[in-house]
Design a protein around this nucleic acid. Structure first.
Length: 576
RNA sequence: GCCCCUGUAGCUUAAUUGGAAGAGCAGUUCCCUUCUAAGGAAAAGGUUGGAGGUUCGAGUCCUCCCAGGGGCACCA
């Protein structure tokens, strides 16, 4: 529809001002205003302002001229009306039948919004928890943002690789090994692995502040680990195994999956090769006993890639990781879903990629804001002031259970299942609806809000539709035959308009790597739906063909709600 | 000190990339013998941190200031 208006508009511009205009340079925008409370029509354009600049004329006059020109052309009944508004906006109202026509076309399509497989490969790296630490609220963002975007890209026809780049190597393991050797106890660690590791880690950090010798001890243990010391390797792989088991529990609860679990330790074997390569290419150089990559050219501080005790660093492993990914997968894009605080790291990594002649335009650091504590400061594992993901999820599920428990028509088992889906959904949506760049100050009540603009609101709308459909006793095969011909109330047309832009929203979300577009769209669709069934009888409608068409309409809305929520990683329920 | 990000209603925030500031929560009113009240309807709440500038048009771009957050070589 937008394309049709565009071509009509182009025709009018040509007719009116043909002489010396290049329409391609004009970048004509047709905006759709399907939910605005203010009535600016179905579509608007600001073209008159742009033309005014070129023609040195009054935008309002130009808008009026264009309006007259379009009305003179014969477009049958396509436009209901055209108005000039403000100081030169052109607003278009489209005939309702046009929307019904469009809608009937997409009703046949069982994969509405989904795109065919295109030969594009994209790696999403997200979640990236650290071994021997518990996942905390900070991990939530990256995990669910990455998962949702991966889902959306897959839906849009990309070959998606979901990569959990585990933090399973580094000096921190030296600290942990040292702590274990000092204070550890095998039976205790076996009984409660993660909590015990965490306690050791925190204790070591506190002790290190008072006793600098401990720091050296930890660094030495890591150096030994890198030298393949048997005892340390054994401890390390034990810690790693237990941690992954723990992570998988949380991922199961979150319904998040990965294709690849390759972490930092995988690249340990490549370190010396990488260092030599960088030295030989004169990209890296020795400095104060360490090896660095100078990056003045990029206006960045030098990057340290090998410590003076010859131990490797996070960045070194990430360079190896990058080279490996390019070589093995030949991706069209690599998206690092990693927090804001690592901006410098990725700027350095991408700069080194350029020095290595790797295509850095394929690399994206998808930053997101931090989760801050109540003091508005960063939460730190080693300070021990964390809020664990597990606890947040369980609290949300508990809260959801309290509410679903009021529904007397459900069994206990059903209630538990619903509470889990609703509770987890609320947590996810709460994050995905907002722009990812913002920092979040952790607040229990906001985190697990089950009302207002929330997942439960959308899930509730979905459940209401399922209930109506069930009570109608209509068969799907019968519903499939229905064509929409008679719906013409404002609410019905608004719903149809909103449905029509679903593919546009998905593209927008993907292009900008923003889940918030999709999340907000689903909320707006649910608002329209609620208004509709609040004021319009469906099952009690006397005229059968209208009733069928309304059922068909809400059925399709529920399909979009479900598809959209699933893309965000949120499930739906038939009752709640 | 240097670099990056942010500042919108009491609180949390949206705004399709420069187009006509929109929600939710809290507070004020209404609506459950009527397809699930995790809902619906109404009103109220804004000089978009401040000052300049560019533009027909600025929450959005530029400069300066104020406030908050993050990062800055042997952590990840």
């Amino acid at each position: 529809m937008q394309n049709k208006i565009l071509s009509i508009l182009k025709l009018a511009i040509k007719e009116k001002y043909s002489k010396n205009l290049n329409l391609e340079d004009l970048n004509i925008e047709i905006e759709s205003n399907f939910l605005d409370k203010k009535d600016f029509g179905d579509f608007s354009t600001n073209i008159a302002f742009k033309l005014a600049g070129i023609l040195k004329n009054n935008p309002k006059l130009i808008a009026h001229d264009l309006k007259e020109t379009i009305l003179k052309q014969n477009h049958k009944n396509f436009f209901e009306k055209i108005e000039v508004a403000g100081s030169g906006f052109l607003n278009f109202w489209i005939n309702k039948d046009e929307f019904l026509l469009e809608f009937n076309k997409i009703l046949k399509n069982k994969n509405f919004g989904k795109q065919k497989f295109k030969n594009k490969k994209i790696i999403f790296e997200y979640s990236d928890p650290n071994i021997a630490k518990k996942m905390h609220v900070g991990h939530l963002r990256g995990t669910i943002i990455g998962d949702a975007l991966a889902n959306i890209y897959e839906f849009l026809g990309y070959k998606v690789i979901r990569w959990n780049y585990l933090g399973d190597w580094g000096t921190q393991f030296g600290y942990l090994i040292a702590a274990y050797k000092l204070w550890g106890n095998k039976t205790e660690l076996e009984k409660n692995p993660i909590n015990t590791m965490l306690k050791l880690y925190i204790r070591f950090h506190h002790a290190m502040k008072k006793n600098p010798e401990l720091k050296k001890m930890g660094q030495e243990e890591f150096r030994l680990l890198e030298l393949k010391n048997k005892e340390n390797l054994k401890l390390w792989s034990w810690f790693r195994r237990e941690s992954i088991l723990e992570f998988k529990k949380i991922y199961k609860l979150l319904n998040v999956k990965f294709d690849i679990w390759i972490g930092e330790s995988f690249y340990e074997k490549d370190i010396s090769k990488i260092i030599n390569l960088l030295l030989n290419l004169k990209i890296a150089q020795k400095n104060e006993g360490a090896i660095i990559v100078p990056l003045e050219k990029f206006n960045l501080p030098p990057a340290l890639i090998l410590k003076s005790d010859e131990a490797s660093l996070y960045l070194t492993r990430d360079i190896a990781n990058l080279i490996f990914r390019f070589k093995k997968f030949k991706p069209d894009k690599i998206v690092y879903v990693v927090g804001n605080e690592q901006t410098l790291h990725f700027n350095q990594l991408f700069a080194i990629a350029q020095l290595l002649n790797l295509d850095s335009s394929k690399l994206i650091h998808l930053k997101y804001g931090l989760v801050l504590g109540e003091n508005k400061k960063k939460l730190k594992t080693r300070e021990g002031n964390l809020i664990f993901l597990e606890d947040v999820l369980n609290k949300a599920i508990k809260l959801a259970f309290k509410i679903v428990n009021k529904n007397k028509n459900l069994t206990n088992k059903q209630k538990e299942k619903i509470a889990q889906i609703v509770g987890i959904g609320a947590i996810k949506y709460n994050d995905l609806k907002e722009h990812r760049r913002n920092n979040i100050v952790f607040d229990w009540s906001k985190m697990i809000d089950l009302r207002g603009q929330s997942a439960p609101y959308i899930q509730y709308s979905y459940a209401r539709i399922q209930s109506i459909l069930k009570k109608s006793k209509i068969k799907l095969s019968e519903l499939n035959k229905v064509k929409i011909k008679n719906l013409n109330s404002e609410l019905e047309i608004n719903l149809i308009k909103k449905i029509l832009i679903f593919p546009e929203i998905l593209n927008l979300s993907a292009k900008n790597y923003l889940t918030s577009y999709l999340a907000n769209y689903l909320y707006e669709l649910a608002i329209l739906l609620n208004k509709f069934y609040e004021t319009t009888k469906i099952l009690k409608e006397k005229e059968n063909k209208i009733k069928l068409e309304r059922l068909k309409l809400i059925h399709f809305v529920s399909f979009i709600l479900k598809t959209g929520l699933n893309l965000l990683g949120i499930e739906v329920v038939d009752k709640m």
